[in-house]
């Protein structure tokens, strides 16, 4: 394969359910060994996109090229993707070892080679000692490790990860993220991981894409994507506060805002609730024009609900956003409470 050609190339991929579009002309590339994360809210089409790539859903338009070959019309079993989802879907009547060895044996690879490969994968995903156990007798995290090893044992060109940790306990989940990422790196396998958890996505991805309503809005390196939201919707999803600036909406991160006493320059607001995340104080405020704003402050201070104050910010942290086309019949934004530089 030439180094300039992407491993996976998706061009104008669309899909519909009963004439309702669920994917709208998605185009993206994935390079060898790359870990691409697609972030989006529930119902944005993340799972459908992965299922279309794997050949489990029909597409209505577009092409999928994997390692230079057009696989759009191939059935799932001839495509060469690996897929892992929230449900590990292990064979209940096969042991851990037999689950992992399933695909290589299916492809009639020599048994000695399979034993070596599976042994290596078992070591890689830390399942030593569990080879002879059945899926019902191991934990949820271990089942997901088996599913990953089984997917890798098939030597897929790309592994598709569909929120594989959504049903895992929070404490286990944190460790598994990094572990899976490392396993894939060591295996040298490219992956597309979809999730609605922005922190998880930004942490894991070499590049991160944002998917809304079946369309890919942006795709970039995590920090660039976070620092340069391209729309109100993207900024909102990434956790920004949206305020109305002089020339349109702007995004301000919760950590970029201050909350000072009344009389200072800024935007008047009232404390709705206050609490601590353990590392910082989180204030939920309501501006006088009714907007909800989150502010993260260093620990300390008393903020009883109803406390009045003024929101402040560093002008350098203000991220202007394009004004979104108003729906037909909508009125123009209110002029009161507009953001002026403090």
């Amino acid at each position: 394969m030439s180094s300039s050609r992407p491993l996976l190339s998706v061009e104008g991929l669309s899909a519909a359910w009963d004439r309702t579009p669920v994917l709208r002309s998605i185009s993206l590339d994935l390079n060898e060994r790359e870990f691409l994360v697609l972030l989006g809210p529930n119902g944005s089409g993340k799972t459908t996109l992965l299922r279309c790539l794997a050949g489990l859903e029909r597409t209505s338009a577009g092409r999928i090229r994997l390692d230079g070959a057009d696989v759009t019309d191939l059935p799932a079993y001839r495509r060469g993707f690996g897929l892992m989802s929230q449900e590990p879907a292990l064979f209940p009547h096969r042991t851990v070892y037999e689950n992992i060895a399933y695909a290589p044996l299916l492809k009639r690879r020599p048994r000695s080679e399979v034993e070596e490969d599976v042994g290596h994968l078992i070591e890689l995903v830390h399942l030593g000692g569990l080879e002879d156990r059945y899926p019902q007798t191991i934990s949820g995290g271990e089942r997901q490790r088996v599913a990953l090893a089984r997917a890798l044992a098939a030597r897929p060109k790309v592994v598709l990860l569909d929120e594989p940790f959504a049903a895992i306990d929070v404490e286990v989940k944190a460790g598994l993220h990094a572990e899976f990422r490392e396993v894939l790196r060591l295996a040298g396998t490219a992956a597309i991981h979809v999730t609605h958890d922005r922190e998880e996505g930004l942490f894991l991805g070499d590049r991160v894409g944002l998917l809304f309503d079946g369309a890919l809005e942006a795709i970039d390196r995590p920090l660039d994507l976070y620092q340069h939201p391209r729309s109100v919707r993207a900024a909102t999803f990434l956790g920004y506060n949206i305020l109305e600036g002089p020339s349109g909406p702007v995004a301000l991160g919760p950590g970029d805002l201050t909350f000072g006493p009344p009389g200072t320059t800024g935007l008047p607001a009232t404390v709705v609730s206050a609490g601590t995340t353990g590392r910082e104080t989180l204030l939920v405020l309501r501006t006088d024009d009714g907007r909800r704003v989150e502010v993260r402050l260093p620990l300390g201070g008393q903020w009883p609900p109803g406390t009045r104050g003024v929101l402040g910010w560093d002008p350098a942290t203000v991220r202007p956003l394009p004004r979104e086309p108003a729906p037909t019949g909508a009125t123009s934004p209110k002029s009161s409470g507009r953001l002026e530089n403090p």
Binding site: L56, Y77, A103, L106, A151, A154
Partner: peptide, 20 residues
Amino acid sequence: DLEETVAVLGGSPARAYLDS
């Protein structure tokens, strides 16, 4: 899920019938 897993792992429809 199991049927789709067999397909993604390279199992033919006949294999999916037998194994899932």
